[in-house]
């Protein structure tokens, strides 16, 4: 019973984190048809920005509770700025190329960003534990949980809800969905697709960085964290169906719970399970869970 509870909570916490990372990735793919390999690097940028901001903030001894606003804002801004640079400086001239070529383009970006991060922040680990310990711990049925984990869950729910509302309840969101649905028709109807791309990429990058910022207090920020996260987000997004935000949520839950089960029962298979789930879903639903196949008309 205890293990079950731990698995459930752990799974949901991990899923929340995965969802926040994957949401930006899937949004960018849905609108721009670019599977951004550098998404993990944006995550890392967010994590580093947040961690150094936390360090600076607490050494100066400002009001602890306000630190959340500051370091999350730092992550979002850093991500948005990086996204802006990448879109304006590079992607813009590459639009219209094959999807697979775009993967390679973003792979190049990933290589570059990994070193940029090392140049900016060095290779030493950063610790930003203060916001993590600040919220304390809770005892639930005899098991102690860090409250920060619940903050993560709440953040995932809020982000998910905001994305949903943004896409379904605002004019801009509806335009975005039009572009997701059919780029050519949208263009013909007078939607400024280029601007939509720009906004989406910046937004997606900011989301990735926000995910990094949110998790920075819960772990040590070291070189290479982005590479692993990026690939996990891939798995999640592919399971849910590329471009589907709802799919990313379900994919994140599946991977999160599966991983938690593995970690608490048979830790040897942790990584295996994540990609095993992905492979299995693709076997059954080649396009992912929430995207349907389109037959070619001849």
């Amino acid at each position: 019973m205890d293990t079950l509870l731990v698995i459930l909570i752990d799974g949901i916490v991990y899923s929340s984190w995965l969802f926040i990372v994957a949401a930006g990735l899937t949004l960018v793919y849905g609108v721009m048809k670019i599977l951004n390999m550098a998404h993990g690097s944006l995550y890392a940028i967010g994590a580093y920005s947040a961690a150094s901001m936390v360090g600076w903030y607490f050494t100066n001894g400002y009001v602890p509770w306000a630190s959340y606003l500051v370091f999350l804002a730092a992550a979002i801004l850093a991500g948005a700025f990086a996204g802006l640079l990448i879109e304006r400086g590079l992607l813009r001239v590459m639009y219209g190329r094959d999807e697979v070529v775009m993967i390679l383009v973003t792979y190049g970006v990933l290589l570059i960003l990994e070193d940029v991060i090392k140049l900016l922040w060095g290779v030493e680990a950063y610790f930003a534990y203060q916001p993590y310990s600040l919220v304390g711990r809770t005892k639930l049925l005899g098991i102690t949980f860090a409250n920060y984990d619940f903050v993560l869950i709440a953040a995932a729910v809020v982000i998910g809800a905001m994305l949903w509302a943004g896409l379904n309840r605002t004019i801009q969101g509806k335009l975005l969905r039009a572009v997701i649905h059919d780029r050519d028709i949208s263009m013909a109807m007078g939607i400024n697709v280029k601007r939509t791309f720009f906004v989406t990429f910046v937004l997606g990058s900011a989301l990735g960085a926000l995910a990094g910022g949110l998790t920075a207090p819960a772990l040590s920020v070291v070189p290479g964290i982005g590479i692993e996260v990026g690939i996990l987000a891939f798995a999640v997004v592919v399971i849910g169906g590329l471009g589907s935000v709802g799919g990313a949520a379900v994919g994140a839950l599946m991977v999160g719970i599966a991983r938690a089960i593995a970690v608490h029962t048979y830790p040897q298979v942790e990584l295996f399970v994540i990609y095993g789930v992905m492979a299995m879903v693709l076997v059954v639903r080649p396009q992912g869970l929430f995207v349907s196949t389109v037959a070619r008309k001849i």
């Binding site: 798995a235 990584l271 295996f272 994540i274 990609y275 095993g276 992905m278 492979a279 693709l282």
Partner: peptide, 8 residues
Amino acid sequence: AFSMILYG
């Protein structure tokens, strides 16, 4: 995914 399974 398959190569990552082997890695894992």
